[in-house]
Design a protein around this nucleic acid. Structure first.
Lengths: 145, 145
DNA sequence: ATCAATGCAAAGATTTTGCATCAAG
DNA sequence: CTTGATGCAAAATCTTTGCATTGAT
């Protein structure tokens, strides 16, 4: 894998969107890539950014995350805990699902999609064309049963 | 159907939870029952409450909604728009799904569940016991295609 | 009569905005 | 150069909390 693959992709994507490619935006993307499974809030992302990029401001993080959301680079996970949380959005496939343990609070990713059939039924029954989905399961993980 | 059915249920449920049955709590429940399909935020619920119950305070609404959530009378819908939104929680069955139109913003309920098979696979593959779920589909409704 | 629930206002927390400065194209 | 992006601080939002009072049991 090319070490610059992420940077090149991002720069090109910004050009397509008529947006400027900046060090801060790249840094936010890098952090998301590195800690994607943590479903970080804006605050958590900002805290991690400051380690490598001390001067970065909160406003930039919020604005960058909004932009990334609009560009479909990331999406909101919505764990309903008072923070807006984000994860990378794989644009080649529908989103994975989240298994949220009611006991320990852990959030486990489940990579299989398995909703194609249901989405087809939705189109047939309701005339609604599905582009993506967000599915959370609540229950008990194997450690907490 | 008995006109007092809702009230009687609620009073009993509060007793079981060691909570007091108050006019304000009943009023919040009534509003939820009447406008459930609106997926109202706390603010919207408060606004509607004030029509019939002018003196009610925001804090009471927030506290009541938290209590209802804990009692599993309602659940958070999580439409990711900056507000915490709620709907009644049918305790006899898993939650219905939401079809969210990316164009007009409408939120359509889909009553069929159809996730039993998937939930069984989750238990087999991941050892995770599903109690409930929250599924949102994003796309275009039939009016916006 | 007791103790929790309410209403009000103040405080907290998260997110957004205005503006001068800086930097990408 | 020009225009948008950044950082800071202030403001705006949404939600929670403290406390005196009210009301349910």
């Amino acid at each position: 894998m090319d070490a610059n693959a992420g940077k090149l992709d991002l720069k090109k994507k910004f050009q397509e969107f008529g947006q400027k490619y900046t060090a801060q935006r790249q840094a936010v993307f890098d952090i998301m890539l590195e800690h994607n499974e943590l479903h970080m809030s804006s605050e958590e992302i900002h805290a991690r950014l400051k380690q490598m990029h001390p001067g970065i401001g909160v406003a930039t993080v919020y604005r960058t995350l909004q932009l990334f959301d609009k560009m479909q680079i990331i999406r909101k996970t919505g764990l309903e805990d008072g923070f807006t949380r984000y994860e990378l959005n794989d644009q080649n496939q529908h989103a994975h699902h989240h298994l949220i343990c009611n006991s320990c609070g852990n959030v486990i990713n489940m990579e299989d999609d398995l909703l194609d059939e249901l989405e087809e039924q939705i189109y047939i029954k309701m005339g609604f064309t599905v582009h993506n989905h967000n599915l959370k399961f609540y229950g008990l993980c194997k450690n907490c049963v």
